[in-house]
């Protein structure tokens, strides 16, 4: 199996635009800059659903835009199907980009008119166009609404149109930027099924899915990369990433109160109110760690109601990686 996507040492720095006034009053101040990517290395294999997981501002969108030739990296290279992204004519036929925002369509036109316009840009031959557009509208279940103005569509419908557009030229690789971000839970569920069964299962597309939703990544992705502040912190199968840094075990305990010093001594994953006490999840160094914590709590007169060991999950890994920063 070949490599669908390869990124090597990608770096990207954005400078914020300065207003004329700012330039006039502070001519020598250098503009504010954001380092969006700090040396990203990735390899994505053909046919997999690859999750690009990270909080807002981690650099997911920037990375996807570099892969789709919309942003030029400052340092490093990216290749799609073996071609460097600098060779746009070779790369563009291989990729379909599903934008994260709902704009990027002509709102005064109908869904079908939009699709017809973009199909010409995607070089679908005129005689095949109507059939292709119909087929895709059917595929994303937009047949009935196709002749209504785009402005009237719900978020879910707009997102489905965005997917249909990205499929016009039948690219082997789909880059999806938080496709479920603005959807309600039911719509998100059905979109995930569609990605898994249709796009990945039936059409065998390679899918790069940017998301900040851990649950979504666990459900869909075969491999994931955890991106934070422009760096890949972990990369591997979901199973591998889950277990990362697990010389510790996670416990969930219900206590009547949780002393502040406990948070300083032990790795707290989550801490919330529960009935008239607190439910706290901690990562501990095995049984020794557990006994240490118990002794610590007893000493302070904390009343323990229950204590369970919990399985490793992506959330825990995420918290550990954050902690390791």
């Amino acid at each position: 199996m070949g490599h669908a996507v390869e990124a090597r040492r990608l770096e990207k720095r954005f400078t914020r635009r300065r207003s004329i006034r700012d330039i006039l009053f502070h001519p020598f101040r250098s503009p504010e800059a954001v380092q969006a990517l700090r040396g990203v290395d990735l390899t994505i294999r053909e046919g997999e659903i690859f999750g690009l997981l990270g909080p807002n501002g981690a650099g997911k969108t920037t990375l996807l835009k570099i892969l789709s030739c919309l942003v030029l990296p400052d340092v490093g290279t990216a290749a799609i199907g073996g071609y460097p992204t600098s060779r746009e004519q070779l790369v563009k036929p291989l990729i379909g980009l599903v934008h994260s925002d709902e704009r990027s369509f002509y709102w005064r036109l109908t869904g079908r008119q939009n699709m017809n316009f973009f199909s010409t840009l995607y070089e679908v031959p005129r005689e095949a166009r109507d059939a292709r557009v119909d087929e895709l509208l059917r595929k994303v279940d937009m047949e009935e609404a196709a002749d209504r103005p785009f402005a009237d569509y719900s978020s879910g419908m707009k997102q489905r149109m965005s997917i249909a557009r990205a499929l016009l030229h039948d690219p082997p690789i789909l880059l999806m930027d938080e496709p479920t971000r603005s959807l309600d839970p039911a719509a998100a569920l059905s979109l995930r099924r569609f990605i898994q069964d249709e796009l990945s299962g039936r059409d065998r597309k390679t899918i790069v899915l940017a998301t900040h939703n851990l649950h979504e990544a666990e459900l869909l992705c075969s491999r994931i990369a955890i991106l934070m502040k422009g760096k890949v912190r972990q990369i591997g199968t979901v199973e591998e990433v889950r277990r990362w840094g697990l010389d510790t075990r996670n416990y969930e305990m219900e206590v009547d109160r949780w002393p502040v010093e406990a948070g300083e001594r032990f790795a707290v994953l989550s801490d919330r109110s529960w009935e008239d006490g607190r439910r706290v999840r901690v990562a501990l160094a095995g049984e020794d760690g557990l006994n240490l914590l118990l002794a610590f709590l007893m000493e302070r007169g904390v009343k323990l109601r229950s204590c369970n060991q919990v399985d490793a999950d992506l959330e825990g890994a995420f918290a550990r990686i954050l902690e390791a920063e």
Binding site: C69, R103, W107, F118, E123
Partner: peptide, 11 residues
């Protein structure tokens, strides 16, 4: 509108 980008990802 974001459509400039949408056009420029196309070939």
């Amino acid at each position: 509108m974001g459509t400039l980008e949408a056009m420029l990802v196309s070939p």
